[in-house]
Design a protein around this nucleic acid. Structure first.
Length: 580
DNA sequence: GCCGTTTTCGGCCCGACTGTTTTCAGTCG
């Protein structure tokens, strides 16, 4: 049973939860939480490093003790401290901490005085009116807890970025229309382009805060007002999405935007830097003593601690502060850098539009080329193409290329990687294509060794140019298949195969962490829409978000190059030469 | 439990909001 970084992070998080309920030293708790975030965000697979007998690299917030615990978790799957803590506290009690409004103190009281250990037990106790009797609780809290538990038991907690966008834009526009409102920015994980968003954080500058708060709560989609103060408010939309509003002075807009954008880990690290310089940073600005020295813009906040402005997508405390201090921040790839798209579908398989329509849409996007990559024959439900139909499409593309101006169509296919790693179409037809995109669409359940070997074999096939959606995850729907990404990334680099950043909102695969892994390894990526209609080309911005979160620059993304250079790259692969 | 241009001990980010507290603790972001 392989131990992933996420598993290690999970053990540390659970230890932190249990220690918290035991009211251990809060800084010790924080140490475990920090370590969990560090491990989770790491592009290096720790299990691999430990397994091969390497010494763990020095990681921030992980000293001798936690390093030893990581090795223990990799070897045994768990850790002695966790086992002991689980004996001291009832299993599952940590899930109570996930209920908004419940922290360690209240959870401890619930479990000690009411023997409440699970969410259903908590709901029952609240409905029976037993919770209000406890010290520090009351009728209002009891109702709030019951509602929160019901939500917790029924609702998914995070929204895909693309879904959150559909709520964020109209709400922000509504607020812009409120009298007296000047600036409106959606901050938080939305601004950082995280693949999922837990809630929306909206920041507003306005003359009369009071009026804004009232109009905010009156937004037609609001189901419930969770909190409402003078400058802060929270509402729950009917969709279940929570939206937080903060009204600030223009003078401290930059400080507030920085604070509200997060991530929390990034903010904490920046404040710590400020503290060392004798400064204090809050959402109201940067202060020396009681004097505000910066805060009108984000640039001024960073400048106060001696740093250049850092793009929101990088603000995860994954080394961006150190890079900024060294003047080595990446020049992140932008949507406008893309010169084309190497993965789209048409009516021939499961797309909605014709080859011609897709070509015109790509041209309208300013692209110089577009690869048509319909599914291969194994994908029956998607009307995948066999060699005969694909040959016919090749002819169609040749004709269109003679006819259309300003855009070049590349002949391609998204070929299934079969169970044994072979491809779903014969080389005789694949050899006639400009670009072969290979993908796993079946047998997601293979054990790690076989799944990895299957994909490595496909990477070794000399005609394969791109590995599509390399982990196969569907956000909030399907876990990634169990593969050794470190080996796949390395092999892709050795073979000159591009790793895809699939921009479909449900995929975003490679993830940000894997983008970083690819960059560190020197593997090139291809940032593709996987469009099934002309509208889906707009999804590329979400892929760009992941790429930027993974520190990718234009030079790390193959399809930022002029067509001529890209063609050379694709053909060099097929000539069997390794890329640098 | 980590960490070091106030260092090997003594710190560890900061402020708003809620409910129950009768002056503030707990929680959240």
């Amino acid at each position: 049973m392989p131990v992933h970084n996420a598993d290690i992070a999970g053990v540390f998080d659970e230890i932190a939860d249990l220690l918290e309920i035991q009211e251990a030293n809060p800084f010790r708790v924080r140490a475990y939480r920090n370590a969990a975030r560090t491990v989770e965000n790491l592009s290096l697979e720790l299990a691999g490093a430990v397994g091969s007998g390497q010494r763990l690299p020095k990681l921030p917030g992980i000293g001798a003790d936690l390093a030893a615990k990581i090795e223990e978790i990799v070897r045994t799957g768990t850790c002695g401290l966790l086992v002991r803590l689980r004996k001291e506290l009832p299993a599952g009690v940590t899930e109570l901490l996930r209920v908004p409004g419940l922290g360690p103190k209240r959870v401890k009281a619930l479990y000690r005085d009411l023997a409440v250990k699970t969410l259903p037990q908590l709901l029952r106790a609240a409905e029976q009116g037993r919770v209000r009797e406890l010290q520090g609780f009351g009728p209002a809290r009891e109702t709030q807890i019951a509602d929160a538990v019901k939500r917790q038991l029924s609702k998914a907690r995070r929204f895909k970025l693309a879904v959150a966008t559909q709520y964020a834009r109209p709400f922000a526009d509504y607020l812009r229309g409120v009298r007296g409102v000047d600036r409106v920015e959606v901050a938080g994980s939305y601004r950082r382009m995280r693949d999922t968003v837990g809630d929306l954080d909206i920041l507003v500058t306005a003359k009369a805060a009071e009026a804004v708060m009232t109009r905010f709560a009156a937004y037609p989609e609001v189901a419930e007002t969770l909190a409402k103060g003078e400058t802060r408010a929270s509402v729950l939309l009917r969709s279940g999405l929570q939206v937080d509003l903060r009204v600030v002075d223009p003078d401290c807009f930059g400080a507030a935007l920085h604070y509200f954008t997060g991530s929390k880990a990034h903010n904490v690290a920046v404040r710590r830097m400020a503290q060392r310089k004798g400064l204090k940073i809050s959402e109201y600005g940067v202060f020396r003593g009681s004097r505000r020295i910066a805060g009108e813009t984000e640039e001024s906040v960073y400048a106060a601690v001696g740093l250049p402005w850092i793009a929101p997508e990088l603000r995860e405390d994954r080394g961006e502060l150190e890079a900024a201090a060294r003047g080595e921040l990446p020049k992140l790839v932008e949507l406008g850098d893309l010169t084309g798209d190497l993965h789209v579908h048409t009516k021939a398989s499961d797309g909605h539009d014709t080859v011609r329509d897709m070509a015109l849409a790509a041209k309208a996007h300013g692209f110089a080329y577009l690869a048509i990559t319909d599914h291969s024959q194994q994908q029956r439900v998607a009307h995948g193409l066999d060699a005969t139909r694909l040959a016919k499409q090749i002819g169609e593309i040749d004709r269109l290329n003679g006819e259309l101006g300003g855009i070049t169509l590349l002949k391609g296919a998204e070929v299934d990687i079969l169970d044994d790693g072979a491809l779903d179409l014969p080389d005789s037809i694949l050899g006639k294509l400009d670009v072969v995109v290979a993908a796993v669409h079946s047998r997601f359940d293979l054990p790690r060794a076989r799944q990895t070997a299957r994909i490595l074999k496909a990477l070794d096939h000399p005609l394969v140019n791109v590995l599509a959606h390399p982990t196969g995850r569907l956000i909030e729907e399907r876990e990634p298949y169990d593969v050794d990404m470190a080996r796949i990334v390395r092999r892709a680099r050795e073979r000159g195969v591009l790793l895809e950043v699939n921009a479909q909102p449900s995929r975003l695969d490679l993830t940000d962490v894997h983008c970083r892994m690819a960059k560190d390894e020197g593997a090139l990526v291809s940032l593709d829409s996987d469009a099934h209609s002309v509208h889906d080309l707009d999804d590329l911005r979400f892929g760009i978000g992941q790429a930027r979160r993974g520190w990718l620059e234009a030079r790390d993304v193959a399809n930022t190059r002029p067509l001529k250079e890209l063609r050379a790259l694709l053909e060099r692969r097929r000539a069997g030469k390794r890329t640098a």
